[in-house]
């Protein structure tokens, strides 16, 4: 009986650290398969991608913990890129004033973050006030945002996102550059991850998010404004997507309306791999960070090994299913151990 209990505890420990173990195994595997996998240039490239998936994953973590999902983040990435690129390259023309307005980069960054939050707020309002399932609501905004991204330029690319000295709107590319050999996106990811962790674990807002996801009815009965919390988590997701939209545009030195296509899946995968329950009520920021690293390492590792894009999709899908199955196993085991502990008492 005691052997069985300690065996369960060992299995539990392994299951809890599964994503980190998988990450280490992946790094070892790809290092053997590709000699230059751990070269500084490769690590920088992976870090760039991890930062993008990771930032999206941070917002997604909050949303999924409340039992929701945000499919619009990839399209928001594309839309924000186009809006920022358009503001830099073409400015905003107001015919009734007879002028075109070119804004400085800090103003553009703040404006884009507000737009991201507003899109999130719309998602949240549709979910809470119109009682539309999060999957459908965000599927709708996903198409709307992608449509607007294309409409902004008629499907064309904004290629002059470096700005113009005479217009005082240079400096946007800094978001995509390296600072002390580390991509700027990684710094932003680190700051946002730290803030998210504090928000989720140390502030009452985080407890409300967990409570709403765990049992919404109980949360409401205990005085938590569940609708407000849900709207706020979608706003956080939109805020994170706005950052990714700007960083990605700066990294590419161009804004293209198709940018971010399908990235919501990477964000969801990073979140689920990190142990956030799709049923809501539990999840951690550190888990999502490790999940983002796993997705980044899998994607870039497979590309470096010459695995076709088609097979990459198959493998990514299998990894996600496996992660959910293991998550379910862990929950069952936890329930079993709790039952055993109760019987022992």
């Amino acid at each position: 009986m005691r052997n069985n209990k300690s065996g369960n505890q060992l299995l539990m420990t392994i299951l809890k650290g599964r994503t980190f173990i998988v990450l280490i195994l992946l790094v070892i595997f790809f290092s053997i398969a590709k000699n230059n996998f751990l070269a500084p240039a490769t690590i920088t490239m992976i870090a760039k991608h991890v930062a993008l998936y990771g930032i999206l994953g941070l917002g997604m973590t909050f949303v999924i913990i409340t039992g929701g999902i945000d499919l619009s983040v990839g399209s928001v990435v594309g839309l924000i890129g186009m809006l920022a690129g358009g503001m830099i390259q073409e400015g905003i023309t107001l015919r009734f004033t007879g002028n075109t307005y070119y804004f400085s980069v800090p103003v553009i960054v703040v404006a884009m973050l507000i737009v991201g939050c507003l899109i999130g707020m719309i998602n949240g309002l549709i979910v809470t006030k119109l009682n539309v399932a999060p999957f459908i609501a965000t599927l709708g905004t996903m198409y709307i945002c992608r449509g607007f991204a294309n409409l902004r330029s008629g499907g064309a690319t904004f290629s002059s996102i470096g700005g113009f000295e005479g217009l005082g709107n240079t400096g946007f590319k800094t978001l995509g550059s390296n600072i002390a050999n580390i991509p700027a996106g990684v710094y932003i990811f680190a700051i946002l991850a730290l803030l998210s962790a504090i928000l989720l674990k140390k502030m009452s807002f985080g407890w409300y998010v967990l409570a709403v996801g765990g049992n919404e009815r109980s949360a409401r009965l205990s005085g938590i404004k569940a609708d407000k919390i849900k709207i706020l988590v979608y706003m956080i997701s939109g805020f994170c997507a706005a950052w990714v939209g700007m960083i990605n545009t700066a990294q590419l030195s161009a804004a293209h309306p198709a940018s971010g296509d399908g990235w919501e899946m990477n964000a969801i995968a990073a979140t689920v791999l990190g142990g956030t329950s799709m049923a809501g009520g539990s999840g951690t920021i550190i888990g999502t960070i490790v999940g983002a690293f796993v997705i980044g390492v899998i994607n870039d590792g497979m590309t470096m090994c010459g695995v076709s894009e088609f097979w990459q999709k198959v493998i990514r899908g299998m990894v996600i299913i496996l992660a959910v199955v293991i998550d379910q196993t862990q929950r069952n085991l936890q329930a079993k151990m709790a039952l055993q502990a109760r019987n022992a008492n």
């Binding site: 307005y101 070119y102 103003v107 217009l167 005082g168």
Partner: peptide, 12 residues
């Protein structure tokens, strides 16, 4: 940084 640079339409 100045917040905004205003350019008459047509002179961009």
């Amino acid at each position: 940084c100045s917040f905004v640079t205003v350019v008459p339409i047509g002179q961009e």
